[in-house]
Nucleic acid binder design. Structure first.
Lengths: 184, 184
DNA sequence: AGGGTTAGGAACCAAATGGTACAAAACAAC
DNA sequence: GTTGTTTTGTACCATTTGGTTCCTAACCCT
């Protein structure tokens, strides 16, 4: 029918997610973005449209890949490793301090880009629900009355840690902290 | 001796702080910055040098004005209002969701600008010490053994709240939360 | 093999970017 | 008022920005 593309859409989108995640939207110019995606201008604009649309798609990709994996991890963890699982959420899993894409997007784009804010809020809500799910499945982990509050608290701690981590300050043992927080 | 300047340095710097705080570094272009500072190009470059140097100075200004005021507030609050004072830290004091300049700077510039990261970390440490000071002055507010941990926890909650606030998600009653956290 | 269709890539573009040059203007000292 | 010094504002600049054009290449189908 026609010439087939020489790249995989998902792979290229993954590259876009990586660089937007690490550098943010405005700090990433087109040449850098194209390089990260392994594309040339022509194919990029044909397949992805504009830079901003690609950023939105990168957020969706983050939702589908990274957030979903975290949610799944929290849904399948067992009693013994509950706090460890929650703590795993906190440790940044990359050598560079890319932090959390949701947090980065909220801070950089949240104010004047409703589409970004909406997606970011939705992902944060997913995370909150998954945390609450852990607390609900293991009644010992928190007082029944305010499990919902506790989930929100942990979510806020998570965002705080991710934000502060980007400037490379001192880090902490979050498993111990969460254990102390939940076992009172 | 010579022609006097027609603007007040501090006032202009305050304007720079405001717009960098609200919009971030990269999202603020020179015309916007000049407008916010009430300056024209000529006087700006004579008095402030480059855009980046102005950003650094704006951070110092934030330290001297905003952070210092918060620290002072925490140092002078009394027992009855301890949690209220801490909670006051959390409420964003502006109509636009500008969040916290320290948090914004960490997320936007922390990774690839060591000067920004250093200043931001120093301000965060000041905030942490002031929180710890409150906990120390009022032994009832937290278990003695881990007051330092608790201060760090509250600081992280603060950053989390400020980061998430920028995307305008649902907010919460932080005075009640802090009270619950400290009175266990 | 040829036609139809889409991908790829380089050249190109207008606009916006941060930063500079320089002449006019406003003051102080004399 | 003249001189010396610094501010101010405009015009200007090179570079970078995101985005488009358009021609060629590659593939499928018949």
């Amino acid at each position: 029918m026609a010439r087939p593309r020489e790249f995989e859409y998902e792979t290229a989108l993954g590259g876009a997610m990586d660089i937007f995640w690490r550098q943010g939207y405005r700090a990433t110019n087109l040449p850098e973005l194209l390089d990260a995606m392994g594309l040339t201008r022509g194919s990029f604009y044909k397949a992805f449209g504009e830079k901003e649309a690609t950023y939105l798609q990168a957020l969706d990709h983050y939702d589908a890949k990274v957030v979903s994996r975290a949610v799944e991890m929290l849904e399948t963890c067992d009693l013994e490793t509950a706090t460890a699982c929650l703590a795993q959420l906190f440790q940044s899993d990359a050598s560079d301090n890319r932090g959390c894409f949701i947090c980065n997007a909220m801070v950089e784009m949240g104010v004047d880009n409703p589409a970004v804010a909406s997606k970011a809020n939705a992902m944060a809500a997913r995370l909150r629900d998954a945390i609450l799910n852990v607390l609900d499945r293991f009644p010992g982990t928190a007082k029944a009355a305010n499990r919902s509050e506790m989930a929100d608290l942990i979510l806020h701690l998570y965002f705080g840690k991710q934000a502060m981590g980007k400037s490379g300050g001192p880090s902490a043992d979050w498993e111990m902290r969460l254990k102390a927080l939940l076992e009172e």
